[in-house]
Design a protein around this nucleic acid. Structure first.
Length: 220
DNA sequence: ACCCAGGTGGCCC
DNA sequence: GGGCCACATGGG
């Protein structure tokens, strides 16, 4: 009967020290991060890289350039990430917004009080809670814990938090881990990297750093 | 021929 | 407020 040990935050701390998160979310500009945040929805990062590269090679990784682009051309660049009609439209709307309301100046768009930026993002089509938080953290540099499906899955399996919802997870992590952008990034990266290992699908997964925290001591 | 991947929005009850 | 569903490509 394995009693559970520790808190969910402690589990996250442990995987944070176990995974290398140095090369997490590579980028050449803040606008590229915003585009990537939309493109990565329900998709692997490798597919996002192809799309970004297609856009980079055509020199359209700016709000004004995307704004002026034919939607069919944008669709072709974004195609490898799936949902390409939705995503191309949503990216172009974001670009339109920055082009129109901030003269195409990404810094101007991002460098505002976090609450103001957040509510702006929430109004946009295709930007839900996770994409909003990814932009707040990675593009704007605000300390926000990002809750993705990996976080929810892990939290549910550990059984250390009740109830398990995106909001309870976010609040728990922000209360129990240091709220610096760096910590938020490392936590998010580590949770995803751990999730991709699919420890949960392998009984007695030998490499899992959380083996002893599992309710039944078997799988996570 | 399945299943899954760093979500979101629309509809239904 | 929760439970489905469509959206679409790429890789195992």
């Amino acid at each position: 009967m394995g009693e559970t040990k520790g808190t969910f935050a402690q589990a996250v701390e442990r995987i944070m020290s176990h995974y290398d998160t140095k090369r997490w979310w590579p980028h050449e500009s803040r606008f590229e991060i915003m585009v990537g945040a939309i493109l990565v929805q329900r998709t692997r990062w490798e597919n996002v890289e192809r799309a970004i590269e297609a856009m980079r090679s055509r020199g359209v990784l700016t709000p004004s350039a995307i704004s002026a682009l034919d939607i069919l051309e944008l669709e072709q660049m974004v195609r490898p990430t799936g949902f390409f009609r939705q995503k191309s439209r949503r990216i172009q709307r974001l670009a339109h917004h920055i082009h129109l309301y901030h003269k195409g100046d990404v810094t101007c768009f991002l460098e505002r009080p976090p609450q103001e930026l957040a509510s702006d993002l929430e109004r946009m089509d295709g930007i839900g809670p996770e994409t909003r938080d990814a932009i707040l953290l990675y593009a704007a540099g605000h300390p926000v814990m990002i809750v993705d499906t990996y976080a929810i899955r892990l939290c549910g399996r550990l059984g250390l938090l009740d109830p398990v919802t995106p909001l309870t997870i976010k609040n728990h992590l922000m209360q129990h881990l240091s709220t610096t952008p760096q910590t938020c990034r490392r936590a998010h990266a580590a949770i995803v990297e751990h999730g991709k290992e699919r420890c949960c699908a392998v009984p007695r997964c030998s490499g899992c750093p959380l083996l002893d925290m599992c309710e039944h001591g078997a799988t996570i």
